[in-house]
Each structure stands twice: as structure tokens, then as C-alpha cells.
Design a protein around this nucleic acid. Structure first.
Lengths: 245, 245
DNA sequence: CGTGGAATTGACACCCGTCAATGACTGTGG
DNA sequence: CCACAGTCATTGACGGGTGTCAATTCCACG
């Protein structure tokens, strides 16, 4: 199991003003889809565009939850730690995903950039003002929360009841589906995160993940194109495995 | 691992008009806390009060999501199944909990009564009208969703990374906290659900759960008062175990 | 008291974790 | 251009925690 005690967690946050809400690719997939066209300027005035280097920290468990984020490009890993360093990745965020739900006033999880990541940052009070002003935005946020909840429930089934093979197959199919929904190609499937990230997402070890990879390769279900790209050569077969048969 | 293929899933839903929103004990804990006092009559007009017998079905995975529910008393188990019968309980719902989030138009989980359960049922369009009319209700619903998400993330950490002992200790403490929040006594802790329900919630088998119970008993951490009530005799010890040490 | 399902306990097997070695890849400096 | 180091991925050997199967025991309920 991977430990996380020695990662360089210092923040690589840096301001950047190149991106603009007006022609933001992520908008239709994000909470900002709930803002009407005439409100975009207002939106822009209340957001900070920023980018984070790979392995850079975005927020940490226990920090006061002063901000909310919107991922506009790149991949983010969100995770929780046990005191002894055991890590559970609770999600990978991509274009349009929202980050920063918090009950009480502190984050209950940490988030780091996997690849270079672009983010929109909202301060909490400003976000609340926006939600007040644009009810569609709040409705949209509720929809995103319900969607995340559904993903979380799928992961619970995976973590509680699936075998290693079933977990990996489910992971592949889930990633394909998300990329497809974003209008990107899911096959060959890019995997920007490490085996250790995948393992900590699936509740396994890197060794077990690696063994499952080679097993799938030997069974003709996948083909590796480098270590971070997988061609799914038998989607139906993977689907069967993912569903438990 | 418990299979769920032979459970009598026919619905025991039955109308009942005794409860009223005006003096509903669950209101301050539920989505209805977002409705102002002057809107209660409107709320009442858009809700059906009902009760479900133990083991009765409330909704089933795949059903069209025509309704949303509000638990006002009793305990509900929410779960997902794999085709071969493996079951993952994704939550136990109690007073004030909301049931019926659905992306797309179908439920992604099933729900059954553990004890006798009282529910308020909203039809989807009526609920949406209410949310439109009372923005506080939508805000409240978002808060409930964020809260459920946090609970789900805790469970992911549990399912992915904790040992059997750690899982059971975490479960006890989680139940205590929820009951306390509802203003009820959490110690001795009532456990209306079966060992098999607990096992399927914690990603274990009944045997392993049972062994952990007796281990805790032998270690002086708990005392059983019948099979469905546990006195937690060493909360600090349980907390240490739950956190991984 | 008798009955049936749930809970507990025991014996054993197996999947996956642990530990360790090797291989593949990337970037750096000579 | 190549040697080298460092990180990550893969593979192997082995052990342990938890699942499986089976036999009691415990209770709730008639």
C-alpha cells in the first residue's frame, strides 16, 4: 500500500489570467452552465483563474474551506488519509468537475494535480452570492452533487464487493464513459495517473493492479501503448467482468 | 456473503394521514427545514405520508424515479446489487434523511425498511415546484447532498483501506454520532439492522463481523445487551481503533 | 416447550498484501 | 552520444487476513 508521508505537498498555485469564462470549453460541463449568457461578465468578475503543476497541492484535508474550485482542464486526484499513511483516492476530477463541497468549515479531503491543471477558484462568500443571483447555478450545483453521489455509490459497490479484476475492468469502463461524455476519445484510454493512484482508488496495491493489467493483456482484453495508454480491445468482455461475470 | 435473491421484495407501502408537517419531529433535520413557517400548509398539500413494514421495499434500482422521500422515523437500508447477488449496503437512513436523488430518470439503488418506517413521499414534479417556490428548501437539499457525499467518502476510506476491526469500530462511532445529532441516545447503541446488513455495509461477511464483535467484547471495548444493543464501554479505545491505531 | 432463523464459533482455503528483486523509462550530466 | 541515477512498473515467493463451508448455539415467537 502506498504511503503518502513523504510527498512534497507544498502548493504550486499561481495566478494566471489567460483563460476567460466567455470562451471556456469547460463551461457547458461545469456549474457555470447554470449562469445565463448575460451573467458571464459577473461570473468572470468573481473568479480567479489559476493553474497547478503536476504533484502540486490544491487543497488539504483540515484546511478551512475558504474556496471552491472548478476544474477546467487536466486531472486532479482527491483523497483521504489515515494517520498511518494509508491512502484512499476518492475521485479523479476532470474538465467541468466541481471541487470544494464542505460540511462544517473544513475540507474533509485533500486534492492534488495529477497533470498540469487549470482551475477557476471562487471564494466561498462570492460563490454564495453568485448562487443567490443565479438560481440556475444552484440547480446545476445540486445536479453535480447528485452525480458525484452516484459515482461515489458505484465506487462503494466496487470497494466493498468486487474482486481485483472486476475493479480494474470497472475502472476502465468508468473512465471511458466520462471521457466520452466530455466529447473526448476514451479508446485508446489515456491514464495520466500512476499505478499507485489507481491502486489507491480501487482499494488495492500497485502490485495487484499491475498483475491485473498483465492478466487482461494476456487474455486479449487490453493492449498497452506505453504505460499510460490502454487500448481496450474487448469492451464487451471487460463489461462482463466489471459486472461480476 | 449474503445473497439477496430470495428476499420478499413486494411493497408494503400503505397510505396514512396521521402525521402532519406542522408538528413533524423530523422537520428540523430534514429538507423541510428549508420551508418557511408560512409555507407549511403548501408543503403539506404536496406530500403523502406513508409507512412501510419491516423488510418492505420502498424503491428498487432501475425503477423510474417518480418519487422522492423523506424519512421521518425508523431505519432504511439503501443498497446496490451485483448480478450474482453480491450486495453492498451504501447507507442506513434515519429521521430527516432524504431518499431519491437520481441522475437520469431511474434510481441507481434499492431501499427497504429495516424497522417500521414512516416516510413523506413527494412526486418529482411537485418537489421541483416546491424547490422553485422555496429557495431555502433547495439550499437545504444541497446541504443534505453535501453531507451525504461526506459520509460516502468516509465509507470509501473505510471500504478501501480499513481492516475488519477498524471498520466495525468506525461503524459504531458513526452511528453514535448520527443518533447524537438527532438528539437521541447513542450509548447504549441500538442496532436495528441484522449482522448481515452490517456486514454488507462494511464490505465484510457476517462471520467476520461476528468475530469482530466477540473480539471487542473480549477486549472490554463493548458489552452486548441482547443481540441488537451494544454498550460502548471504551469510546476512546474504539476511536483509536477506528482511526487506524 | 418446540421451532426456525439469526448469530456465533471452528476448520480450512484462497485472494490479495507484503517483501524483495528485476526491468523499463526518463532526464541529466559528463 | 552514452553512462548513470532515480522513479515507476512488473514479476516472483510467501504469508496472513478474511471468505467459505459447516456445525452449534442463541433467541424470538408461536
Amino acid at each position: 500500500m502506498s504511503r503518502n508521508q513523504d510527498l512534497p505537498l507544498k502548493s504550486f498555485l499561481s495566478a494566471c489570467t489567460t483563460a476567460e469564462c466567455q470562451d471556456c470549453d469547460a463551461r457547458p460541463h461545469s456549474v457555470c452552465a447554470g449562469v445565463p449568457e448575460h451573467g458571464i461578465a459577473d461570473l468572470e468578475a468573481n473568479v480567479t483563474h489559476m493553474s497547478v503543476e503536476p504533484r502540486g497541492a490544491i487543497l488539504m484535508e483540515g484546511d478551512p474551506a475558504h474556496h471552491m474550485f472548478n476544474v477546467t482542464s487536466g486531472t486532479v486526484r482527491v483523497y483521504k488519509l489515515l494517520p498511518d499513511g494509508r491512502r484512499q483516492v476518492i475521485g479523479f476530477l476532470m474538465t467541468g468537475d466541481f471541487l470544494g463541497f464542505a460540511v462544517r468549515d473544513a475540507y474533509a479531503y485533500s486534492a492534488e494535480a495529477v497533470t498540469e491543471v487549470s482551475l477557476c477558484r471562487f471564494s466561498r462568500p462570492r460563490m454564495e452570492a453568485l448562487l443567490q443571483k443565479f438560481p440556475g447555478m444552484e440547480k446545476r450545483l445540486l445536479g453535480l452533487a447528485a452525480n458525484e453521489l452516484a459515482i461515489a455509490q458505484d465506487l462503494m459497490l466496487l470497494l466493498g464487493r468486487k474482486t481485483a479484476r472486476e475493479r480494474l475492468a470497472s475502472f476502465f469502463l468508468m473512465m471511458v464513459e466520462r471521457l466520452t461524455r466530455l466529447g473526448r476519445t476514451g479508446n485508446p484510454l489515456p491514464l495520466p495517473m500512476s499505478r499507485s493512484d489507481i491502486a489507491d482508488y480501487l482499494g488495492l496495491t500497485t502490485e495487484t493492479v499491475s498483475r491485473a493489467f498483465t492478466q487482461f493483456r494476456n487474455d486479449g482484453l487490453i493492449a498497452l501503448e506505453g504505460t499510460d495508454t490502454v487500448r481496450l480491445t474487448d469492451l464487451a468482455g471487460l463489461q462482463e467482468i466489471a459486472d461480476g461475470n
